[in-house]
Nucleic acid binder design. Structure first.
Length: 789
DNA sequence: GCATGAAAAATACCC
DNA sequence: ACGGGTATTTTTCATGCG
């Protein structure tokens, strides 16, 4: 019998010494099914030591009776390692556990130089070798099995590979459940050892919502109700916010304390921690939205509320947010408890709304990278690229290197030009799209094409990088070139298809999400190449890409000069030039011919402002919008007040060209500030905690504020952001920083905000026009007097 | 002992 | 736990003066 299914998730089960791969899927009729593959075995490779024949290793294995009881197959394979041919011994085993037990023995034989690919996870190995990718459709021969006990699915099948990919570009209707949890503590942060869960709010993709709370009940029945609801609804995806790092652990511990089985998966098991720190819920995808917020760099303080607001989600927007520090107070106050209940429900709704916006992307990312959705979500960008490479490596016959510790040696990056200070009119921004990926393709830069310095290779067979002299074989195409070409052409095809589709239609959403996911991965390949943690790290590979990048920009600069085009600025892959249309067209043409890479017009600024600083500018577009780049406005570590004032100053200068008006605005704002007629919120400075508090070498305000929170029973982890204000008093500011929710507007040091927050960002801009803002602020009364005449 | 300026630490941006 | 280049603030430290 043939069965078509959409691949949701995969896990491994050991059954009576026989490894089983369990594939969770959804069939064409919407049945939730479990497919079991009993025919896959783990394996690894041995590279023989120099002057050792692969056969010698095989003989040695065969002479070990005990070992042979776990070995299924031994064969010699022609493979490559960093592009160089090697004869490797492939050892196929009965079960994954046996691999771990016996790998050391191979190294002890004295015949084996390297053991490789024993560190590839069994389920990932399975997906790669069976050519399966999550979130797509396949068809396979199956035989129906009796239901596995304790497994919640409509049917269970034994599969007989191969799997045939189906050309179906739609997603089955997934059942999604979003939830939010409120924990109660009167003394600082709730800890599961001590503090109960008081509210769990749930909402489902078919519109049902439910709230369980300690309102007149006990925690045991609250958690039990939650579990029953999950099992009853039987979601494919369970979504939440900070669930991987926080709420699953909390639920697990509270459930254990109350003697409740937290069986929220499709088997009778509780969630468990898995790769990259994500929580795995068997048979379902556990989606933590926190894993996706980093893709939106504009969101500075990473709260669920800010995430929803950024995505234009209005649910609960009209209701005041409640700070976690206030939860206990709200719960204990009968008049406020309803607000907390409402807030918790709103959080669940927000989770569901965000899922609606990012799920397509998440699925496409899983599909492209080739690992399950929850696994890919919590994987850092480098690991995403690496899974793609591991899959591709198999096609290349390229062995997957081990991850090794390496020492850091810096190398040169992109070239940044010093901007011409001041206001410039009519400036075109030209840039090389995907410069590094295209350079890597053009010069075949790859770990498997790199030619080591001593190697005797004729010069006509290699590309030689400028400045650094690294060499790369012109042929055959390297693994980077191959995946980059595939990614870029796939994206181009998608973008063509998108043009013929209705914006917002299901296919449009799917293809758009896919092209975005492809873009993210494409742009991450260079970063991967220069990452010390990369399995395929070779410093000259990354170094060559940037060297060619600098060469390209330098050449572009020279060509501009030859055409008499005035260059204002440039950074890595862009040049800002005066917009003389004829000359610009000519430049684009010459660059294409001479450099073989495409320089394209990106945008034209009616006006653009540069201070003397690199990486900071503000440009006015034709439609009246402004681009703010690098300035304090776009930074998360300045008080809102400073950012608002700078934004207004830039608006006035770029749109009205009136530095005097800008100055007056600042003076006026400062006088308002002096009267404390600004919300405290606008004076809060948010800064990240980047490491454990005790590892800091110098005193700093946000660290002191964090210490105050820790004293009050809160836990601060690396990655958290602390919001503080500077209060009046004497001494260095780190002694006067306190968490913002412990301060009132009367406490703040207004002079600090004026001179250290408001003034510097606007001064840098105004001084270009000869406006002395400090004087304007100190001689205010005199100035007003003079202005009167 | 203290003012001063350079260096170091820390953060967050750009591409 | 993807790269290097850069701006900026605040703290820390060395230095020279008296």
């Amino acid at each position: 019998m043939r069965k078509a299914f959409w691949l949701l998730d995969v896990n491994y089960e050991a059954r009576d010494g026989c490894p089983e791969v369990w594939i969770w899927g959804i069939d064409r009729e919407g049945m939730r099914i479990l497919l079991i593959d009993r025919g896959f075995r783990p394996y690894f490779y041995c590279i023989p030591k120099e002057k050792t024949e692969p056969r010698e290793i095989i003989e040695e294995v065969k002479s070990n009776r005990e070992l042979m009881s776990d070995v299924v197959e031994l064969e010699v394979c022609k493979m490559r390692y960093f592009g160089k041919p090697v004869d490797a011994v492939k050892v196929t085993y009965t079960r994954p556990e046996a691999v771990e037990e016996h790998v050391k023995w191979f190294l002890k034989t004295g015949k084996v130089d390297k053991v490789l690919e024993d560190d590839i996870r069994f389920t990932a190995r399975y997906l790669i070798d069976r050519d399966l990718r999550p979130c797509s459709w396949y068809e396979v021969e199956v035989e129906e099995l009796e239901g596995e006990k304790g497994v919640k699915v409509d049917a269970v099948y034994l599969v007989k590979p191969p799997f045939k990919p189906l050309d179906i570009h739609e997603t089955p209707a997934l059942k999604i459940l979003a939830f939010s949890v409120v924990c109660y503590s009167t003394v600082g942060e709730p800890v599961p050892k001590r503090d109960p869960i008081v509210i769990i709010s749930l909402i489902t993709s078919d519109g049902k919502s439910e709230q369980f709370s300690l309102n007149g009940g006990d925690e045991k029945s609250l958690i039990k109700s939650f579990v029953d609801f999950v099992r009853g609804f039987d979601p494919d995806i369970i979504a939440g916010y900070a669930t991987n790092s926080k709420y699953w652990d909390y639920l697990i511990e509270r459930a254990a304390k109350n003697g409740v089985n937290l069986y929220v998966g499709r088997t009778e098991t509780i969630p468990h921690r898995s790769v990259y720190g994500h929580m795995s819920v068997t048979g379902r995808i556990n989606l933590d939205l926190l894993d996706y917020i980093d893709e939106f760099g504009e969101i500075k303080v990473k709260t669920l509320e800010n995430f929803a607001e950024f995505l234009g989600i209005s649910e609960g927007g009209e209701v005041e947010s409640i700070d976690e520090m206030e939860f206990a107070r709200y719960w204990d106050d009968p008049s406020k408890r309803p607000k907390l209940l409402r807030f918790s429900m709103d959080r669940a709704r927000r989770v569901m709304s965000i899922v609606d916006k990012i799920l397509d992307y998440s699925m496409q990312l899983a599909n492209i990278v080739g690992i399950p959705m929850d696994y890919v979500g919590s994987a850092a960008v480098g690991f995403r690229v690496e899974w793609l490479l591991i899959r591709e490596a198999r096609r290349f016959g390229e062995l997957v290197p081990k991850r090794v510790e390496r020492r850091y040696f810096p190398y040169a990056g992109g070239m940044v030009l010093t901007p011409k200070k001041g206001l410039h009119e009519n400036i075109a921004v030209l840039d090389f799209k995907s410069l590094y990926p295209n350079i890597m393709i053009k010069y075949n830069i790859s770990p498997d094409t790199y030619v080591e310095p001593g190697a005797d290779v004729p010069e006509e067979k290699v590309y030689v990088a400028p400045e650094v002299g690294h060499r790369f074989l012109k042929e055959p195409p390297g693994i980077y070139k191959k995946i980059l070409e595939d990614l870029i052409s796939a994206r181009d095809e998608l973008r063509v298809k998108l043009k013929s589709l209705a914006v917002g239609s299901p296919s449009y959403r799917l293809y758009d999400a896919r092209q975005k996911a492809i873009k993210v991965i494409t742009n991450a390949v260079y970063g991967y190449a220069g990452w010390l943690g990369a399995r395929w790290y070779i410093k000259p590979v990354a170094e060559a890409a940037t060297a060619w990048g600098r060469y390209i920009i330098r050449s572009t600069l020279e060509l501009s000069k030859e055409l008499g085009l005035n260059v204002i600025y440039g950074d890595t892959d862009s040049v800002f030039v005066e917009y003389d249309e004829a000359k610009v067209d000519k430049l684009l043409d010459i660059v294409r011919k001479k450099l073989g890479l495409e320089l394209r017009p990106d945008k034209v600024y009616v006006r653009v402002l540069f201070t003397e600083a690199k990486k900071r500018y503000c440009g006015l577009l034709k439609d009246g919008r402004l681009d703010y780049v690098g300035f304090e406005i776009v930074r998360g570590d300045w008080a809102e007040a400073a950012k608002k004032v700078q934004e207004e100053v830039l608006k006035i200068i770029l749109k009205e060209k009136s530095p005097d008006k800008a100055r007056d605005f600042v003076v006026e704002y400062v006088s308002q500030l002096r009267e404390r007629k600004v919300p405290l919120k606008d004076l809060v400075i948010w800064k990240s905690i980047t490491r454990p508090i005790e590892e800091y070498k110098v005193n700093a305000p946000h660290i002191e504020a964090a210490k105050i929170l820790i004293d009050k029973g809160w836990t601060i982890y690396p990655g958290d952001k602390v919001g503080y204000v500077i209060i009046s008093g004497s001494g260095p500011i780190y002694k006067r920083a306190i968490p913002y929710n412990l301060a009132s507007i009367e406490d703040v040091d207004i002079e600090y905000y004026i001179w250290k927050q408001i003034v510097p960002p606007v001064e840098r801009i105004l001084k270009i026009f000869g406006v002395e803002i400090k004087q304007a602020l100190t001689h205010r009364s005199l100035r007003t007097l003079l202005d009167a005449y």
